[in-house]
């Protein structure tokens, strides 16, 4: 049995289910309790779990991330919500220098089973400081796992897996996708970390993406189908560890690949995917792998900038035609 719910509801169900099962799980962050979450993801959780387990913090990202790390080292399982990953930048010291390294530094004695979650990516005309993606920043760091997805069914299952995971997991959501609806089973389930999902089967080209850009890939694939081009769309869902098996199997089948990544191009997720495709599927490629990223600049406020900046179906289709040697 399944029903249609939003991404925000799916995320809340994941947290609430795990909190019911394990008293060591708690939620902490700015406006998560009395305000019901800046984006209403934690709506009603204060009522159910009380202020000991759904905790409003002051605006002190470094401090409460560190409190989460300490609590995790001492046996609890914190979920730390950032109002956006743009604000988590203040907490990178604790995430990168402590959460990621505690197990290694302590010779395996202390782990850090913590979830850092919040929205990442552009969300309209929010200008430079509020429009960035952080998957590649976090995924660059050994010790961390990184999830980034917006499909409600995947987001719920993956967040549940992240909460019970023994390692620190960064979960990237999307402000403008919290209202996205999807089929989610009634019964409990977990989605494994480190597995991509083929959203759409195809034979001519592999489109690889994650987070809200998978929807742009879906739209591009629809358009391409009308022109007789069959695109396979892969949602990475987990950025680190990356599911190379699914990627490589698809490229070996289609022989062509475009990576669609909202992040900036330099040393990003798209670079990592592209490196692995050339390394493991070189003999199967009929064209160089190319990528569609956001522009290599800071995003300004005006609507014309947003349009110019982000990947969209037009840009994706142009890239597909380039690798298929089809005239646009």
């Amino acid at each position: 049995m399944s029903r249609i719910i939003t991404l925000r509801d799916a995320l809340r169900e994941a947290m609430s289910e795990e909190m019911r099962k394990d008293k060591n799980v708690f939620l902490m962050g700015e406006e998560v309790a009395e305000y019901n979450g800046a984006y209403k993801v934690s709506k009603g959780m204060l009522d159910e779990f009380g202020p000991e387990r759904v905790i409003d913090t002051p605006i002190t990202e470094l401090g409460f991330a560190g409190i989460g790390v300490g609590a995790a080292m001492n046996g609890l399982k914190p979920i730390v919500e950032f109002m956006t990953w743009n604000f988590a930048v203040l907490a990178f010291d604790q995430i990168v220098n402590n959460a990621a390294k505690t197990l290694s530094q302590s010779g395996g004695q202390f782990g850090c089973p913590i979830v850092f979650r919040g929205p990442s990516g552009a969300a309209g005309q929010l200008a430079q400081q509020h429009s960035q993606t952080f998957e590649s920043w976090m995924a660059n760091c050994p010790g961390l796992k990184v999830i980034s997805c917006i499909d409600p069914v995947d987001a719920k299952g993956l967040l549940k897996s992240a909460i019970i995971d023994e390692d620190p997991v960064c979960v990237m959501e999307s402000e403008i996708m919290y209202g996205l609806k999807g089929d989610v089973p009634e019964e409990e389930y977990y989605t494994p970390i480190g597995k991509a999902r083929v959203r759409r089967k195809g034979t001519d080209i592999t489109l690889i993406s994650y987070n809200k850009m998978v929807l742009e890939c879906d739209k591009a694939a629809e358009e391409l189908a009308k022109e007789g081009i069959s695109a396979e769309v892969i949602d990475l869902r987990t950025i680190r560890p990356m599911d190379l098996d699914t990627i490589i199997a698809s490229v070996k089948k289609t022989n062509r690949c475009v990576v669609v990544d909202e992040a900036w191009p330099f040393a990003g997720v798209s670079s990592e995917v592209t490196y692995n495709v050339q390394k493991f599927a070189f003999d199967y490629l009929d064209a160089p792998v190319i990528r569609v990223n956001s522009a290599d600049v800071s995003l300004g406020y005006a609507p014309t900038f947003v349009e110019e900046y982000l990947p969209n179906p037009t840009k994706i289709i142009r890239a597909v035609k380039e690798v298929m040697y089809v005239n646009a």
């Binding site: 200008a127 430079q128 406020y301 005006a302």
Partner: peptide, 16 residues
């Protein structure tokens, strides 16, 4: 309004 005649040429908006 995000216009080019803005004090930072439409780059900043309300916060900047």
């Amino acid at each position: 309004f995000g216009k080019v005649t803005g004090c930072v040429k439409g780059k900043g908006g309300s916060m900047h």
